[in-house]
Design a protein around this nucleic acid. Structure first.
Length: 593
RNA sequence: GUCCCCGUAGCUCAGUCGGAUAGAGCAUCAGAUUCCUAAUCUGAGGGUCGGAGGUUCGAAUCCUCUCGGGGACGCCA
């Protein structure tokens, strides 16, 4: 059976409504709100009655429901169809239909997930800056972006992930001037020297992490210090060789450190481009924008007006050049769009960046549309909320500082270790394996805790809750998966093999229907760029499996061979889908725990 | 001042192109184990969906107003 049971029923119901002279969309079938009555429902009869009333005809929704159910009752996939209340149709599929579908899913390596028409998509995420060590603020962009990238890739799209480093602004001026104060004798600062600089970086990541905040703090208090940073930024952007050479060192050193940080999260980028990469494109881009006549001078700055008079809200202009002549955030983002157009020509570009930058992207997107480079629907900002502490304010360490990412990761690992020790799990495993399990449990806790929330809302970070093995958590999901692995090992030992699935128990049926919802969950997650819908699916799947596992013995002695085979196939199928789903949200499952 | 997000059970959150008795998880209480991993499962209690109007046969969901929390608003990124 090549279609999901729900789609089969949906198509049948739509045809029935159409046959009765109604718009076919009244036949929409959904998973039931009342699973105690039936797995599926259709509410179209009420809508159809309203439709007739508007045309001045008399209408009784229950009568319409009766007519629909008469048409549908001949459908071989439907075991039962009942009318409830004002005209709800409650539909129960036959066990054969469910079994047939389950066998199809079993024979499909993708367990029912469709491959859709591929688009070329660039996803810009990570949010890292040169010289700034990774901290909790970088977590969400990395984790959410990675999940969306994997989701889109799994759906069949050609997806290119770009970290898009922040390496071209005032922060570079801060670093250069602060380093000059510390080590004025470095050759990079000789105004007349060009081209011949040491290969080795004069600074390590720790130095950068120290220099930037120091400079930033001084500049805030001292306008003259700020002016030096601005001047250095302008000189860098004008191409001063010593500064450019320093920037290259900063970038190299930072990327090495960032790769480690993102690596610890299981996040990988295809492109490590940054703002500096598009610098050469900027003069030509500005010429082109001028030639198009969409720029204007305003208070000494070069801008593009993107305000729409017909709207109530006012959108400030795109700032191309500051009055100092310096390039700004808008400029490099626009130039990056030009670069991506010529290098990749994507159908869609997604930015996984903090919700607070929504206006910035609105401005840049409008600028790119006004320039004629993209259609508005090719550009999307996927904003997200902040990670808060239990006090509801952005997460801080006990001392009130910003928590570094590596400390966050080890905090989760430690919490996982403690949990594992408390419950005596894996005590007879060797130290390496126990450490590996703690890593995976901690990471699953962290990622699931983050991704299960709707993207745009703020959420409360609570390591205690996230690492719990009970409830809607990452560790619970790992447990469910590991338990199946253990079962399969045992089955292999006993020589039991998976066979044809025949649904006989309600818990088997519920599990099969949960499995059948995979493609729907992925499609919904894609359409909203919402990883939490993938989380919901895998959680419901794990729950359905746990119930099945409790209710339906598999390898026990008194179970008939074909029942063993059928249930083992369901377990194998569940594991495969669970791992596919967990992989999308970036969670790895250990072999045992 | 303009705009954006949020307000749902004691807590943390789903649900918002209108549909039945508003769902999960935690916590609380009551059960289940000759156990294939109980790190599990079953059941119960717990709600003026911030508030007030309106549209509708029907509103957490749509419209208007309002209260509360967070955030963004031309030369930082």
């Amino acid at each position: 059976m090549s279609q999901s049971v729900l789609i089969l029923l949906d198509q049948a119901a739509r045809a029935a409504f159409e046959q009765l002279g109604f718009p076919e969309n009244f036949g929409k079938v959904t998973e039931s709100d009342r699973p105690d009555l039936a797995p599926f429902q259709c509410n179209g009869a009420m809508a159809a009655a309203g439709f007739l009333k508007k045309q001045g005809e008399k209408a009784n929704p229950r009568e319409i429901a009766t007519q629909v159910s008469e048409i549908l009752s001949s459908n071989s996939a439907i075991a039962d169809i009942e009318i409830a209340g004002p005209g709800f149709l409650n539909i129960t599929p036959t066990p054969d239909a469910v079994s047939g579908r389950a066998n199809t899913l079993f024979s499909d390596p993708r367990t029912g997930a469709q491959n859709i028409d591929p688009k070329t998509i660039v996803i810009d995420y990570g949010g890292a800056n040169v010289a700034k060590p990774m901290h909790v603020g970088h977590l969400r962009s990395a984790v959410i972006g990675e999940a969306i990238k994997r989701l889109l890739r799994f759906r069949g799209h050609n997806v290119i992930g770009d970290v898009h480093l922040g390496d071209w602004g005032l922060q570079m001026g801060h670093l250069i001037t602060e380093l000059e104060d510390e080590q004025p004798d470095l050759p990079y600062f000789y105004a007349d020297k060009a081209g011949d600089y040491p290969d080795a970086s004069p600074v390590a990541m720790d130095d950068l992490a120290r220099l930037y905040p120091a400079a930033s703090r001084k500049a805030k208090e001292d306008p003259a210090r700020m002016e030096r940073s601005r001047a250095a930024t302008a000189e860098l952007q004008a191409g001063r060789p010593g500064y450019r050479a320093l920037l290259d060192h900063f970038i190299t050193v930072s990327i090495a450190s960032l790769k480690k940080g993102y690596g610890s999260l299981g996040v990988e980028f295809d492109l490590w481009k940054g703002e500096a990469c598009v610098d050469p494109l900027i003069p030509g881009m500005i010429d082109e924008l001028r030639a198009k006549g969409i720029t204007e001078e305003s208070d000494g700055a070069l801008i593009i007006r993107v305000d729409d008079e017909s709207e109530k809200k006012d959108v400030p202009p795109v700032m191309l050049l500051a009055s100092s002549g310096a390039v700004l955030y808008h400029t490099t983002d626009l130039a990056t769009l030009v670069d991506r157009k010529s290098e990749i020509d994507p159908d869609l570009i997604l930015y996984v960046v903090d919700q607070r930058q929504a206006l910035h992207f609105e401005q840049v997107f409008r600028g790119a549309v006004k320039a004629g480079w993209y259609d508005r629907d090719q550009l999307d900002h996927l904003g997200f909320g902040t990670m808060n502490g239990k006090d509801g304010k952005p997460f801080k360490t006990r001392e009130g500082g910003v928590l570094r990412l590596e400390d966050l990761v080890s905090m989760m690992r430690d919490a996982a270790t403690t949990r594992l020790e408390e419950s005596g799990i894996g005590q007879d495993f060797d130290a390496d394996e126990r450490a590996d399990i703690a890593d995976k449990v901690g990471m699953a806790a962290l990622k699931f805790g983050d991704l299960q929330n709707q993207r745009t809302t703020n959420y409360v970070f609570d390591p205690e809750r996230f690492t719990a093995f009970e409830g809607k958590t990452g560790p619970y999901l790992l447990y469910a998966a590991v338990r199946i692995k253990s079962l399969l090992r045992r089955a292999a030992d006993e020589g039991v093999r998976a066979g044809e699935i025949k649904i006989s128990h309600p818990s088997e049926s519920a599990l099969a229907m949960a499995l059948d919802g995979f493609d729907r969950a992925l499609a919904a997650a894609e359409s909203k760029y919402a990883p939490h819908l993938v989380c919901d699916h895998v959680y419901r799947l794990a729950q359905s499996f746990s119930r099945f596992y409790t209710d339906c013995p598999i390898l026990k002695n008194d179970v008939a061979t074909e029942v063993k085979s059928s249930r083992l196939a369901l377990a194998e199928l569940t594991l495969r889908q669970l791992e596919l789903g967990l992989n999308i949200i970036g969670i790895e499952v250990p072999e045992r725990m």
